[in-house]
Computed example of a mutant assay.
Amino acid sequence: MNYSEKVEETVEYADLRNKVQSLLDYISSEDEQLKNDREFAMKSNESIAYQMINNNIKQNYILISTLSAIRSDIESMHDEIQMDINKEKASSVQSTNSTDNA
């Protein structure tokens, strides 16, 4: 097993994509409930509750945006690792072929 494959195995074991996606799913479901609560607070003329809920929605937006960027970075990292593995494999095959021809 070459170095890139070891790195890939370590990254896969950490399962960062699924962890981030779980957080995104949770926050998104909470966000839907907050929007329903905000609508109720608006209809009930509860301005303080409406403002607090609105602030939570804004905070969730920031969290979702940040986590989405992290997920994108993780996916890019996986792609780069896979490219490195393919390069190492190609280099290894080429090296083996050169040795066989000698």
Rank of each mutant, 00 (worst) to 15 (best):
D73P: 00
E75A: 07
S29M: 08
L24G: 06
L23Y: 08
M52K: 14
N36T: 08
S76N: 15
S22N: 15
D37H: 05
S91A: 14
V20D: 03
S44H: 04
A90K: 10
E75C: 06
S76G: 11
S22G: 15
S29R: 09
Q51R: 06
N18K: 14
I62P: 01
I62N: 15
D84G: 00
I53E: 04
K19Y: 11
M77A: 15
I48P: 01
S68G: 15
I70V: 11
M83F: 01
S91H: 06
S65L: 12
S72I: 03
N60Q: 10
I48H: 14
D31T: 10
S92G: 08
S28H: 06
S91D: 11
A49W: 01
D25W: 03
I74L: 12
I81L: 12
A90T: 02
I57L: 09
V20W: 03
N86L: 04
F40V: 05
L34F: 06
A49L: 14
L34W: 01
S22W: 07
D79E: 12
L63F: 13
N56P: 00
N56Q: 12
K43Q: 09
L67S: 14
R38H: 12
S28R: 04
D37G: 00
S76C: 08
Q21K: 11
I81W: 08
D84F: 07
R71F: 09
A49I: 03
Q59I: 10
R38S: 11
Q21C: 00
M83A: 11
I48A: 15
M83D: 14
N86V: 01
S65G: 15
N56S: 13
D37I: 00
E32V: 11
K43G: 04
Q51H: 10
E88N: 08
I62L: 05
V93P: 00
D25T: 11
E39Q: 05
N55P: 00
K89C: 00
